[in-house]
Design a protein around this nucleic acid. Structure first.
Length: 874
RNA sequence: GGGAGUUUAGCUCAGUUGGUUUAGAGCAUCUGCCUUACAAGCAGAGGGUCGGGGGUUCGAGCCCCUCAACUCCCA
């Protein structure tokens, strides 16, 4: 069979994707092997995979494929989450395009549309995951709105409520006026920007001449003012004790109150207290028993309570209020100042602090064991403990979690409201009614009303590692017992609080068991200018486009080679190019070996010794041990670098050249056999990183019953380190001689005569055949003395004389050798400086001192060799 | 304002408990080669006072202090 000139990534991908699937290699069921379980961080059902996901899924696939090849029962569960705010807003927009207003639909009708949407677009990310080569178990696809999952979320809500860990209350929350829903603290992103501080005059009630000036950034909220607060020790305001002032524009009277909370140096030292619209004001209001006047509607327009500008958007109202204040002579001045505003992560709207009655999870009790699990080392965070401090700080200062969202897409809160403000939490209306009967014996189904709101998406995804195995709905089922706790969670460091910490809480609460043993945090993917990838900047490439252009293997290679654990990575398509070059290299190695295998030449090249194979065997085992070690430490990028160099440099550039038969001759069958075995071993090591090309080459190299992805990795074997030293010596001589050839402008075809002067001829015997071939020497022999008229090279104590068919440049020779001599002298000086320091000899460990002595001896020997060579020159 | 991290070759990064011949890799650059696997390649080469300053030590890229710049998280 003729091999194509280049590797056809697209053909190999589709071929192996379907073959793997057909043979059900990645479908897992419990057995007597050790499980290796990974649950995918569920991407948003509406989304497409971006480069961050690509990194994430690639890391997971490497770990999963590697574990599978180690003989573990690997199970990788794919899935997606319902992303309530993001999805609902997309569905609403889609309906709007069709001319349908969400509010004209019933809840059930709306959910029908939402599920249709999910079916249509939810498949996109699964196709992408598959195209990337991810070895997930497609029989286990999970979705956070699956029936059993829905049930699990409701069950957990009821349970936590009964335990007193969920409560309903009026609190200051983050309100998204665009999505018209509450947000958790974690869903708000803060941006620094320039705002304005308005100085507004509040006149005293009893004396129109007297007034107090207040600096505010939000003049549109003054209609909600309930007090002016100043510091009790502030001399400027002592005379206002017990007095009242008038709220501008609406002329409401409010008291002046005193509290040490006030920062006297900010603004005028007087704060207008608007409890409905600022968390700090809210706290002061609570302390001083002030009323709460909410002057905003849910959509961010002014409410009736504002009295003026009712129905205007808050930002329009601000301008109007400022204008009116100026007209009334109550605006003293405007000042530019730096501030920070919260934006909704989902809608992008400026978040409004708002008093609202919402459902909360009490976090303190849940946080404690979650912190312990990590500090006590039951869960290991990679890389290192870099995120420990962050994790600890959040858990130690954790605030209650607002879990209700004013949406329909999600699990509806299982709470019913009855007469006299009574609340019952139950799985069904029937059960709720039953519970109400205890207090209201005559109550009817029509007397109770279910909470309209749904739960935060994270309130479902914190159960992910459990409920994908039905650990909540069917506790202690055999699958769950086998797969849980999972082995490793791979995710972005940006969701450490949203998700990771909460999964640990849920796992410890419901299973008394951590959800995963290791957490691997990937960094953020940035563009090559260091900017975060985002839709608005348009700097995030299309994954499928990249795969079509470079192939999935090259994409995986590119993202992993530039991905130091936990650090942000600057994504550059150059690295993908490097990946496809690597594909090409592998493909060509295959072509070369296949060519040897199918050669028609009858004469065998017997000059090929066994040294090359002996050396590569040792090098392979060394690298294999190194790679295993790195993988166990999650140093995936470094392991790939080792592999890349092992394959490209050691295997292709050195080994294959060393065993390549002379032109027109055939390779020794024993050497060919070993070469194929080496290549197979390399493909196996590389497989987790580049699954498609490795499968394709492995299959082409020989007839196989099974694919590479389920072959078993054998542990690294012992090797003879002197083989590696020998190999290094050989590589060094070859490089130096090639360098000398180049410097003397020798063409590759021109031959040389090589003489070696050494006290250790035996060391060279296994290397001679290779050496002669690699430096194109037509003659090679040992000598006991300098050869006149040759180029001399020294390596350690040995000298090599290159006889060329041309005049050599003696001066160039001299300056070359002199430069080396100077280096050695300088080096010797530095070593001797250490050795002549008595305190060094006394204090340093003996082996260190011995090493320095060896350096000294080596340097002396090198100097002697160099001086002799110089002396021998005319 | 609080916390964490980063700063090593033109770029992106390694450098494990301080001592492995006066710092390594990839990419980029330069030189020579279309050598029958590969020009998406081969063979070579050049390039760094390890952010500045101070300290500890026989010895510092690594430990301590300080200054500077950048990044992230939290308020």
């Amino acid at each position: 069979m003729e091999l194509s000139k280049t590797f056809d990534a697209a053909a190999a991908s589709s071929k192996w994707t379907s073959l793997w699937k057909e043979r059900r290699y990645f479908n897992s069921t419990p057995n007597d092997k050790t499980p290796f379980t990974v649950v995918i961080p569920p991407p948003n059902v509406t989304g497409v995979l971006h480069m961050g996901h690509t990194l994430n899924e690639t890391v997971q696939d490497i770990l999963v494929r590697h574990a599978r090849m180690q003989g573990k029962n690997a199970c990788w569960v794919p899935g997606s989450d319902h992303a309530s705010i993001a999805t609902e807003s997309k569905v609403v927009a889609m309906l709007k395009e069709k001319g349908i207003d969400k509010h004209t639909l019933t809840r059930a009708e709306f959910l029908d549309y939402a599920f249709q949407w999910k079916e249509k677009y939810g498949g996109i990310i699964y196709q992408q995951i598959e195209k990337l080569g991810c070895s997930v178990d497609w029989d286990r696809v999970s979705f956070t709105m699956d029936d059993h999952y829905y049930e699990a979320v409701i069950k957990v809500f009821i349970d936590l409520y009964q335990k007193g860990l969920i409560y309903r209350g009026a609190r200051m929350i983050n309100w998204d006026p665009a999505a018209k829903t509450a947000l958790s603290d974690e869903e708000v992103e803060y941006k620094d920007l320039q705002g304005k501080l308005y100085y507004v005059r509040y006149q005293a009630v009893d004396n129109p001449e007297d007034y107090i000036t207040v600096a505010t950034s939000r003049p549109e909220t003054i209609m909600g003012d309930v007090a002016i607060c100043v510091h009790p020790d502030d001399p400027r305001y002592q005379h206002l004790k017990g007095k009242k002032v008038i709220v501008p524009l609406i002329n409401r009277q409010i008291p002046v109150i005193f509290d040490t909370y006030i920062d006297r140096s900010f603004g005028t030292g007087a704060l207008k207290v608007t409890p409905a619209h600022d968390i700090n004001d809210y706290n002061i209001g609570m302390k001083h028993n002030l009323e709460v006047i909410d002057t905003l509607n849910p959509d961010g327009t002014l409410s009736e309570a504002a009295q003026i500008f009712v129905g205007l958007d808050r930002f329009v109202a601000r301008k109007k209020v400022v204008q009116q204040l100026a007209e009334n002579g109550l605006l003293i001045k405007e000042e530019v100042y730096d501030t920070r505003l919260g934006y909704s992560q989902r809608s992008g709207a400026v978040v409004e602090p708002r008093i609202s009655t919402q459902w909360f999870v009490k976090m303190e009790q849940l946080a404690e064991p979650a912190l312990k699990a990590v500090t006590e080392g039951k869960i290991n965070i990679h890389p290192g403990n870099r995120f420990m401090a962050t994790y600890r700080h959040w858990l130690e200062n954790v605030k209650d979690w607002c879990i209700s969202r004013q949406l329909w897409w999600g699990q509806q809160i299982p709470a019913w409201y009855g007469p006299e403000g009574s609340i019952e939490v139950a799985a069904t209306a029937e059960e709720a009614l039953e519970q109400f009967r205890a207090k209201f014996p005559d109550i009817q189904a029509s007397d109770i009303r279910r909470d309209e709101d749904v739960l935060d998406t994270w309130f479902s995804s914190w159960l992910w590692p459990m409920e994908v195995f039905k650990g909540i709905t069917e506790p202690e089922n055999p699958e769950f017992n086998y797969y849980y706790p999972t082995s490793v969670l791979v995710t972005g460091q940006d969701i450490i609080f949203f998700w990771v910490a909460r999964m640990i809480m849920a796992g410890l609460e419901y299973e008394k068991e951590i959800p995963f043993k290791d957490v691997y945090f990937t960094g953020m993917v940035r563009d090559k200018l260091g900017r975060k990838m985002s839709k608005s900047l348009g700097n995030s490439p299309d994954l499928i486009g990249l795969i079509d252009q470079y192939g999935a293997d090259a994409v995986r290679f590119g993202i992993m080679i530039s991905s130091p654990a936990g650090n942000d990575l600057l994504f550059d398509e150059k690295s993908l190019e490097q990946g496809s070059h690597f594909n090409n290299k592998l493909w060509n190695a295959l072509k070369l070996i296949k060519m040897w295998e199918n050669a028609t030449a009858t004469e065998i090249d017997e000059t090929t010794t066994d040294f090359a194979a002996e050396w590569f065997e040792a090098r392979l085992q060394q690298a294999k041990a190194e790679i295993e070690q790195m993988l166990s430490q999650f140093r995936l990028s470094e392991a790939l670098k080792v592999l890349y160099s092992l394959i490209w440099d050691d295997f292709c550039s050195w080994y294959l050249e060393w065993v390549k038969p002379a032109y027109g001759k055939a390779i020794r069958p024993a050497v060919l056999g070993r070469t194929i075995a080496f290549f197979e071993a390399l493909l196996q090591l590389l497989h987790p990183y580049m699954p498609f090309i490795t499968e394709e080459i492995y299959a082409t190299l020989g007839d196989r019953a099974e694919a590479l992805c389920i072959s078993t990795l054998t542990p690294p074997k012992k090797y003879d380190p002197t083989l590696l030293t020998q190999g290094d010596l050989l590589k060094n001589i070859i490089t130096q001689i090639r360098d000398a050839r180049g410097k003397n402008n020798l063409k590759p075809r021109e031959t040389i005569k090589l003489f070696i002067e050494t006290a250790q001829q035996h060391k060279y015997h296994p290397l001679l055949a290779i050496l002669q071939k690699q430096v194109n020497a037509d003659q090679l022999q040992f000598t006991r003395e300098a050869i006149a008229g040759t180029v001399v090279i020294t390596l350690q104590q040995d000298k090599y004389y290159l006889e060329l068919n041309q005049q050599i440049d003696v001066e160039a020779q001299k300056s070359e050798l002199s430069a080396q001599l100077k280096y050695q002298h300088d080096f010797l000086d530095s070593v001797r400086k250490k050795l002549s320091n008595e305190r060094f000899v006394q204090n340093a460990k003996p082996e260190i001192v011995n090493k320095e002595r060896k350096k000294e001896a080596d340097a002396l020997a090198r100097i002697k060799t160099l001086e002799e060579s110089l002396a021998a020159l005319p």
